[in-house]
């Protein structure tokens, strides 16, 4: 029984949440907070693979999110909405449900390829110099999109709502909430399977000692390539979901500020802990909403909290432990494969 309790409760949770949203028990605002939470979980767990498990310092996660957001948005707008440059919709709206995951996948795939910009230099260099490369990659993505007039440039890009409406036309349930929840579960599942697999054990090995890992027959270059591409691909997935939640994207919402936010979530939760990254993404999203009345002071209070955290508990909330390591009794109720 304990083998399946977690899976069952997870899907029951998704079902209950969707049902609550469907019958209007939780309002639009709460729904959007939950969706942002999901996106933040995807972002923080995927960055945790690089910054936590692999021990690198990547500070350009927003750039990959931007690539995913734009690619998937362009695909769905091209297929399902009327755009003055991209022309009339190519497919009837009834196909939106089937094409949407493909568009998300396309965004994630292109973002993963964009991750090569960072992955290839990481063969030769690490630490501070690699941090700059990720930073520069973020800037390059933002200013490249700024200069593409065909997708709106600095004014942003919109028209993704048609796809969401197309899905709702087929069956009127909160589709975006469902997609975000599935995306989140998929991300955490994939990352967990990866880091606990024999192949994925190479990633923390690189963090511990790269040369020793190589002696132990870990192909470090291949591991770095996989880790960076997986991380940036999942960031692209988060970007695609984010773009379709808002129905509007602007290159400047993915700038260095966004990357910093994701980094904050990773270090708040604890490096190398998936449950920590999940927990901190939830906490951080809630904190942002709770502190909203403070307006601009919010961005003074949050850095201050993180500075205090670094002084008194620098390893983050969970350290590098998972929830089941901290509370061993939980193992009675669920187990993972």
């Amino acid at each position: 029984m304990q083998k399946h309790t977690f899976t069952i409760s997870l899907f029951a949770g998704i079902f209950v949440l969707t049902a609550l949203a469907q019958f209007g028990v939780i309002n639009q605002y709460l729904q959007s907070v939950i969706m942002l939470m999901g996106v933040n979980i995807i972002l923080s767990t995927s960055l945790n693979l690089v910054n936590g498990y692999m021990g690198e310092f990547s500070c350009g996660h927003g750039g990959f999110m931007c690539v995913g957001a734009y690619v998937s948005s362009v695909v769905t707008v091209l297929l399902f909405s009327k755009n003055h440059i991209l022309g009339a919709p190519l497919l009837p709206p009834s196909l939106a449900l089937f094409a949407f995951p493909l568009a998300l996948f396309a965004g994630a795939a292109v973002a993963a390829v964009a991750g090569l910009v960072v992955a290839i230099p990481s063969f030769k260099t690490r630490g501070d110099y690699l941090a700059i490369i990720t930073l520069a990659a973020n800037y390059i993505v933002i200013s490249a999109i700024d200069n593409m007039e065909i997708i709106g440039g600095p004014r942003g890009f919109m028209g993704m709502n048609a796809t969401v409406h197309g899905m709702e036309g087929l069956l009127d349930i909160p589709w975006m909430l469902l997609w975000v929840l599935f995306g989140t579960v998929f991300t955490v599942w994939l990352l967990r399977r990866f880091v606990t697999s024999t192949l994925g054990k190479g990633v923390p090995a690189i963090a511990q000692d790269e040369i020793a890992a190589e002696i132990m027959s870990v192909d470090t270059n291949r591991m770095k390539l996989i880790a960076f591409m997986l991380s940036s691909g999942l960031a692209g997935l988060a970007g695609g979901l984010f773009a379709h939640i808002l129905g509007y994207v602007n290159p400047h919402s993915f700038d260095i500020m966004k990357s910093t936010e994701v980094m904050v979530m990773v270090y708040l939760g604890g490096m190398g802990s998936l449950s920590g990254a999940t927990l901190s993404a939830v906490l951080f999203t809630v904190l942002l909403e709770v502190l909203r009345p403070l307006e601009i002071w919010k961005w003074v209070v949050i850095p201050l909290l993180l500075i205090l955290l670094m002084q008194f508990r620098p390893e983050g909330i969970m350290g590098n432990k998972e929830l089941s390591d901290l509370f061993p009794k939980l193992k009675k109720y669920y187990s993972f494969k």
Partner: peptide, 13 residues
């Protein structure tokens, strides 16, 4: 490094 990053944000905001 993270403390420095946050200190910068605090100064700005």
């Amino acid at each position: 490094v993270i403390t420095a990053l946050m200190a910068g944000l605090m100064l700005e905001n």
